[in-house]
Simulated assay, not measured.
Amino acid sequence: MNSPRAISDIKKDLESFVGSKIRLKANRGRNRIIEKEGVLESIYPNIFVVKLDERKIERRVSYTYADVLTETVELFVYDTEDAEIRIAAANH
């Protein structure tokens, strides 16, 4: 079993994908899992922001790096062939 990565490593991984199209999978508890597509908009010391385009409405959601560490949030980025690559995983 791999040991979990440090929050600073997760933040460093995300920095290289700012501005990239991503797919977000978030566990909201009680069997509520949301999957959305958006753009990784910005990185801050304690959170990251994803801009979502839903039904002509621009919305921003923020998550902490601890959410990624605890696997409450999973992020996938699209590469040049539109294949998904998992980024910022706790056991990467």
Rank of each mutant, 00 (worst) to 15 (best):
K25F: 02
V18D: 00
T64F: 08
I33F: 13
K56C: 09
V39K: 07
L40S: 03
V18E: 03
E81I: 01
V77D: 07
E37M: 03
V39D: 04
L69C: 04
S62C: 08
V49M: 11
L52N: 11
G19V: 02
I57D: 11
E41T: 13
K25T: 02
T72I: 13
S16H: 12
N46A: 11
R30W: 10
A26S: 12
V61K: 10
L75E: 06
I22N: 06
R23K: 14
R30A: 14
V39Y: 02
D82F: 07
R60N: 10
R30L: 12
T72C: 05
V73K: 01
V61W: 02
G38Q: 06
V18G: 02
E15N: 11
I43C: 08
L52A: 01
E71F: 01
F76I: 01
D82H: 05
A26C: 06
E54W: 01
D82W: 01
V77K: 00
S8G: 04
S8Y: 12
K36H: 07
E15H: 01
K56N: 14
E37R: 01
L75M: 14
F17S: 08
P45W: 03
D82N: 15
G19F: 04
V49E: 10
R23T: 10
E35G: 05
F17R: 10
K11R: 15
D53I: 00
S20W: 01
G29R: 01
L14G: 04
T72Y: 02
G29E: 11
R55C: 13
K12L: 05
K21T: 01
I10M: 02
S62V: 02
T72N: 08
K11N: 06
K36T: 08
R30I: 10
S62T: 06
I34P: 06
R23G: 06
E35D: 10
I57C: 08
V50F: 10
Y63I: 14
L69P: 01
D13L: 06
L14N: 08
S42M: 13
V49W: 04
E74V: 07
E15C: 06
T80L: 07
K56T: 05
K11M: 11
V50C: 13
V68E: 05
V68S: 08
E35Q: 15
K12H: 00
R28Q: 14
D79H: 00
A66F: 09
E71G: 07
L69W: 00
S8W: 08
E74A: 12
I10K: 11
V73T: 09
E81K: 11
K12M: 01
R23M: 13
Y44G: 13
T80V: 00
Y44K: 15
N27E: 08
E54F: 12
E41C: 02
K51G: 05
I47N: 15
I33P: 06
N31W: 11
D79C: 00
N27R: 03
N27F: 06
S16A: 15
K12C: 02
D9H: 12
K12D: 00
I34C: 13
D79G: 01
D67Y: 09
E58M: 07
E35R: 13
T70Q: 06
R55E: 13
D13P: 00
